[in-house]
Nucleic acid binder design. Structure first.
Lengths: 126, 126
DNA sequence: CTGCATCCCAATCGATACTG
DNA sequence: CAGTATCGATTGGGATGCAG
């Protein structure tokens, strides 16, 4: 097998990439895991995820809505009420995401050990 | 269950986040999937992954090395030869990553349909 | 309450040039 | 061949103010 034969077809790269890109950003996973427990209002989400700015929470939710992972329901009371809910698609993608999260949790000590070792080595090498 | 109770413990967020952060960037997945087929030299990797700049490939490989996912072996010939190889840890993390990639592949049509629908709707709404 | 618009800083990334 | 260094363009993301 020549190295060139390991090319991933461009369309594969792009599709996988586009999914990983959206779950890879700073807040998406947090929002999805929070919403996976049940519907929440905007303000509840914001309180549940410490550190997120209004702007980023809005942007994250818009992206999730566009990708079909969550639905946005507006109740036109005054003041307005907006609820966010996971879709079936969203709940499905949580399965492999949670698997990855579980791996990360179980193996975090191995990764951080590798990092410490690497950092110590490069500090000595300097 | 109150929304606040859905807080992920901060240490969980940070650890999961730190793993997802490193695999979430633009080139990491591509590099890992390419290396998963067997060791490659720097230049082979670069040719195998179209579009990656030398700078980003170097940075990506450094991060993977630091996290213990790949090893870097220098053969001090002239000119120098550097081989990159997946570690056991790297091969392990590929399992959940590939699961996610497989999901993305199998469901890409659903995601892109959702996007088209969303974009059409917002175009009309404008 | 929800969320858009604006300003602004910091990090990211690509291109290019240069070194062991 | 395998990097490092630097510059410029783009992007991410927080703070603030305003509107429905």
């Amino acid at each position: 097998m020549k190295p060139q034969d390991r090319y991933l077809p461009p369309e594969v790269c792009r599709e996988v990439g586009s999914v990983l890109e959206c779950i890879g950003d700073k807040w998406t996973i947090l929002v999805m895991r929070t919403l996976d427990g049940g519907s929440l209002r905007f303000s509840e989400l914001r309180r549940s995820i410490s550190g997120v700015s209004q702007k980023m929470l809005t942007a994250t939710l818009r992206a999730l809505e566009r990708d079909g992972f969550v639905t946005r329901t507006v109740t036109p009371t005054v003041p307005a009420r907006v609820d966010y809910t996971m879709t079936d698609l969203g709940r499905e993608v949580m399965v492999p995401i949670n698997a990855l999260a579980t791996w990360a949790l179980r193996n975090q000590h191995r990764v951080s050990a590798a990092r410490r070792s690497y950092d110590a080595k490069s500090a000595r090498g300097k």
